[in-house]
Design a protein around this nucleic acid. Structure first.
Ligand SMILES: NC(=O)c1ccc[n+]([C@@H]2O[C@H](COP(=O)([O-])OP(=O)(O)OC[C@H]3O[C@@H](n4cnc5c(N)ncnc54)[C@H](O)[C@@H]3O)[C@@H](O)[C@H]2O)c1
Ligand SMILES: NC(=O)c1ccc[n+]([C@@H]2O[C@H](COP(=O)([O-])OP(=O)(O)OC[C@H]3O[C@@H](n4cnc5c(N)ncnc54)[C@H](O)[C@@H]3O)[C@@H](O)[C@H]2O)c1
Lengths: 237, 237
DNA sequence: TCGACTTTGTGCATCACTTCACAAAGGCAC
DNA sequence: GTGCCTTTGTGAAGTGATGCACAAAGTCGA
């Protein structure tokens, strides 16, 4: 019983930056709901979500005018509206390809099953791994990728294979009609227009931290004396 | 033998957006280096890193003038310069707090040890887990957090505990002098100024994908007929 | 019913980042 | 040398996000 909203005047063009924050607001709202809070002001919600309150109000205004001046926002109603906007009122079948260290952790993770995401398939190329029972599922051979996607209506695929296999897996997944991919492998995936790839890259996050850490400690980049500093000195102006 | 660079004219104020892309360039460059490529044009490197070439050139120009007109950039030299800028010429001791599904996957992950990051401690509060051998390390009790940080010179901490424990762990870690934190727990950490927190949140990534997926399938958010749509209709204008 | 008070929603100035487009720089062939 | 060709480095314009500040809207107590 899900159908398209008849005619919604706004709807078009919610900024990406806003979309990226909606899950944050949703989490904060769920926290409030658990503590039986009925309404919340933009100021309080902003603090809970760690953002500026004007930004929060502007973000929410993209969804519609759901607040009450002088009072704030109804927590339950806002949860519903944000969930609906994010597409969490329906559930999404997710397949995880590559059931190694990371794939297992993801499969066992309760955190996304809780919100509309259902792990509908675990696939791996290694015969040793195929057949393992993880989180109530049996790992299937990645040869079955296309049929698993088709049969179980998978619309989001998580890639947790080694970097070398990621592009090939990605190509097959797209050929099967999937257009939303979450990639953990440290490679830039090449995909046709219309396919969304989001990446999670731990190593990049650490490197960004290291950059700032270095500035805090030293005030800036260091040179390694007489090891490389001199060596390179001649090569460039 | 590491010391501060004498007087660097630029150095100050590399835009955050640029810093976030440097690891990407570095990875692409390492790929080229493995294939023994000596020089690369901004165009080719941009394709490998999945960005616009003008953006790449502007990013690199923040580090200095390291290209040669008509030729491109020396791969090895650029690897060195970016590594130095990111602080990867020194190595960083990392501690992982919370050795559950995710913490184990991280500990076993070879990907960051390879680039200047060394896992120097694994800590958990669960006596069942303490004493486990993982990736050549023994899991220690989280009571030892402060002493592990001090003794092993830990400067970056990865938090992989349940959300409920994250803020407490964070506070202790900061009290021990750490100012760089990578947080996997789905909570907004409150930290004093001067402390950098980066977060990785799988659930947020999936929700963003779901948002776009919904738009592709339906053209926009759906209403759930007669279940909630009607129910809420009365509550708001 | 009214007026004081709270809080939203948004116009606007500002800031940050992106992209275009091209002059200047340098290599290389002859 | 000299001139052509490639590619960098960067002004300048464009795009999008941010945050201030406030009028308008609505609540609530008296
Ligand atoms: N473990 C981490 O903490 C971590 C962190 C960041 C990034 N990553 C990245 O995530 C990916 C997975 O990491 P991991 O530690 O789980 O590695 P892993 O080696 O433990 O697991 C990879 C799994 O993928 C399977 N596989 C290989 N080729 C396949 C294919 N073509 N189709 C299906 N399955 C295939 C392997 O059999 C293996 O089970 C890697 O790209 C890694 O760089 C891991
Ligand atoms: N597993 C995933 O794929 C995944 C994905 C995204 C986010 N997360 C988040 O990462 C965190 C860890 O996830 P997980 O699946 O590994 O959970 P987990 O329950 O398997 O592991 C958590 C570990 O933290 C330990 N711990 C609890 N309190 C502690 C404390 N005060 N000090 C030190 N250690 C403590 C526990 O003993 C346990 O070993 C959670 O916050 C989770 O929401 C996990």
């Amino acid at each position: 019983m899900i159908r398209r909203t008849p005619q919604q005047p706004r709807e078009r063009g919610i900024p990406d930056a806003t979309v990226a924050r909606l899950p944050l607001y949703l989490r904060a709202l769920n926290g409030l709901a658990e503590r039986a809070v009925a309404t919340v002001s933009s100021e309080d919600l902003a603090v809970a979500a760690g953002v500026n309150s004007a930004k929060l109000r502007k973000d929410l205004s993209h969804l519609g005018s759901y607040g009450t001046r002088g009072v704030g926002y109804d927590v339950q109603y806002l949860i519903y509206q944000i969930s609906r906007e994010l597409g969490l009122t329906q559930d999404w079948a997710v397949a995880i390809v590559g059931v190694g260290n990371l794939g297992r952790a993801l499969a066992n993770y309760g955190g996304f099953v809780s919100r509309g995401f259902r792990v509908a398939g675990l696939l791996d190329a290694d015969p040793e791994v195929v057949g393992d029972h993880i989180a109530g599922l049996v790992v299937e051979h990645s040869d079955e990728l296309e049929s698993v996607i088709a049969k179980r209506g998978v619309s989001i695929v998580v890639i947790a294979t080694p970097a070398t296999a990621a592009q090939a897996v990605c190509d097959r997944v797209i050929a099967s009609g999937v257009t939303s991919i979450l990639n953990f492998a440290p490679v830039v995936l090449t995909v046709p227009a219309g396919v969304d790839v989001r990446k999670v890259d731990l190593s990049i996050e650490l490197q960004i931290l290291a950059f700032h850490e270095q500035r805090k400690v030293n005030g800036g980049p260091a040179v390694v004396d007489e090891i490389m500093g001199e060596e390179w000195a001649g090569e460039v102006s």
